[in-house]
Amino acid sequence: MKTLRYMGRAMGLLLRSAMQYRASFLMQTLSQAVMTGGELLAVEVLLGRFTRLGQWSGPEVLFFFGVMQCVFALVEFVGRGVSTFATYVGSGEFDTLLVRPRNLLVQVFCTRLDPRRLGGILVGLSALALAAAGQPLAWCWGKALLLVASCLGTTLLLVGLFLIEATVSFFSVKSIEMVNVLTYGGRTACQYPVDIYPTPLRLLFTFVAPFALCMHLPVSWVLDKPLWGASYWAALMAPLAGAVFFGIMVRVWYWGVRHYRSTGS
């Protein structure tokens, strides 16, 4: 409760800071819209030309895309502090967080808690609406629960993946671009269902960065085409993989804090 109030306050302060630069505020909001809109355009172009992707119809592909957009908007909203953490360590500002009596990771979230990022959810939801309109889907509470679990699990997975780079930044001043392979690369690759990919990529996205478990399995169940013929319970439990991944990365990150060297001597 106290944590939520703190996050609310931090968000308000960030918005007020952003409002100081009107033009910038507008441009940033606009660029968000361009980004998500551009991706939707790309998917539409591909679906216009090819109509099918493996066993999936156009609306089904759009459905996966919509879920990924919503998830990434959530990640950008809550996890910017983590994904930009390397610059925070580089400038020595992390010291400031260490001398405050609050949970460290919550404080890191609070450094960049930008509600405007949630705008991407609108694009995601409209993609979902388009997708749902394009196919006969029977809805029930069970499916809604699956979607929520899937979004939460995938969000935790992505924040966990961003924590890898954050942890590396304790040890090396150079930010490791390669981690983008799993975060931004994972986003791009896994907005399409995992079964279209060749085996190495499928293994990568099932066992290393388990997007398949967090997202594709439950969402495929919602579309009545469960991957690997999974049962409802299996589909509901699979997103826990994201929570487990996040939990492990939080431990690793705290281990990194112990080895933090600060700047200067």
């Binding site: 106290k2 109030r5 703190y6 306050r9 931090a10 302060l13 007020r16 800071s17 952003a18 100081q20 630069y21 405050r100 009596p101 609050r102």
Partner: peptide
């Protein structure tokens, strides 16, 4: 916080220190 009145910064600090 760089871009907001210092009173607002102090407010957030109150929240942080509870």
């Amino acid at each position: 916080w760089w871009d907001v009145p210092i009173a607002d910064s102090f407010d957030l600090l109150r929240e942080i220190y509870d």
